[in-house]
Amino acid sequence: MSETAGMRIGVITFPGTLDDVDAARAVRYAGAEPVALWHGDHDLRGVDAVVVPGGFSYGDYLRAGAIASLAPIMTEVIDGARRGLPVLGICNGFQILCEAGLLPGALVRNAGLHFVCRDQRLRVESAATAWTSRYTAGDEIVVPLKSGEGRYVADAATLGELEAEGRVVFRYTGGNPNGAMSDIAGVASADGRVVGLMPHPEHAIDALTGPSTDGLGLFTSVLTAAAMA
């Protein structure tokens, strides 16, 4: 683990972000240093990776993630992602990355209209991303899901491309909670450096406070990825 010592991972806070503290805690549990990033700054403070956490940025006004995707810090995140900076979007963070064009598709209102809050079983479909290398494809993990606009949609061509290129990273198992197309819970960018998912791995890092420790692997995976960058 010596090559990962001193790794610094940014966690962005927007107005309405809720899960930045848990995301920072997950970064710390993984053995890295969390660095608080502010939505209004044009500054990534030299971090090795970025987590865009969950919540209700800007009150979900217009569309979930739409306003946040245009915040000053996102200009830097988009530039960084183009250079291969690992970026993870969780829940509202996933919505923001889709709105910013860093990930394909969109997240819309759950098919059943209900806000879904439960421990969700997922299958890891790809270990070939910056955020999932510590898993093995086919692994099943349990992490909390809590969202009202979590239904992943994309056009047929995009879905075909994601499947063909192995960019569906997480899929819901044991029942689709929100009507997401092809049971998709998370996807990756073409280079595998940007990953977004609706469920919350940062809430599943300690048996005391979560249903499992299955989520920690995302935060330990990126240490290797960032070290190689």
Binding site: P104, A106, V108
Partner: peptide, 8 residues
Amino acid sequence: SLLANPVI
């Protein structure tokens, strides 16, 4: 680019 999301 803002009022609508052309994906959906």
